[in-house]
Amino acid sequence: MNKLDPRTKIVIILCLSTLAVVLNSPIPLLVLFVLTLVILSTFRINFIGIMFKFKKLLPLLLVMLIVQSVFAAGGETLLAYKGINILTSNGFNAALCILFRMLILFSSAMLIMTSSSKDYVLALVQLKIPYEIAFMVMVAFRFLPVFLEEIKDTLIAVQLRGVDLKRIAWGNKVKFYTHFFTPLLWSVMLKARQLAITMEARAFRVYRRRTYLRVLRYSVLDYYVMAFFLLTTIMVLFYVSLDKFSPGIFSMTDHFQLSPGKPLLTTVALPVLHCQKYKKCPDSCSSGLIKE
């Protein structure tokens, strides 16, 4: 299964996450989650370790449970305090939906890791997305872990020079982090510029087109898998629109707008922004190196 075309994997992820957002009662979502895990195991992804990391989200879920119970009308009241519903069956359902949705979104995204990021560049380019954007996305994924490690080292250096991050008061902590943030942003910008220089110094964007060492081709299996997922998703969507799966529970899709962090965006955008205008594309790109 890991040999599947990255485009097929993107389709699978899109189908799973569409379903996760559209379905809104716990039982179908649970079924979908189990299905996702089955898919992951056919890709031989070890998901157990990562699932445990979701423990940290439990307090958040508890808050959601109460918020949903207080503000969403309807359902049986399980616990009330001075006339305000603290726990309702609707609230309980809603919290479960959130849990399953998160689990499905995160675990389906793990499929991404089964292909090299260069393959996704190829996939995006072959899906007619401009290659600059495809490279921007790839570079972001490539440098994210590097930045995280760097921040970790910097925090160690700060502590070794006498700041006890665990003990300083909250006010000072905020002050400290704002102080710390400017140089960090600067260093990210400098790296981005250096990267832009490196890329252009290797003739990036010298022509409007570029060629690739490898070309992605769909196999028969890709067609089957894609057809299966697309058809199933469309069928489920059809049923949902007939309101068979949806018992009319408060829909919570708007809680799931994942927004990427700002520094990340800057890093990604800068190399390309820095690169200069294209040269004219030669008539036949494959004729090799054309000098002015």
């Binding site: 910097t154 070794l160 260093s187």
Partner: peptide, 16 residues
């Protein structure tokens, strides 16, 4: 850190 000073291999990481 009061007793031992440490200089990282990559100096960028300890400049903040």
């Amino acid at each position: 850190g009061r007793r031992i000073g440490y200089v990282f291999q990559n100096p960028d990481r300890q400049i903040f």
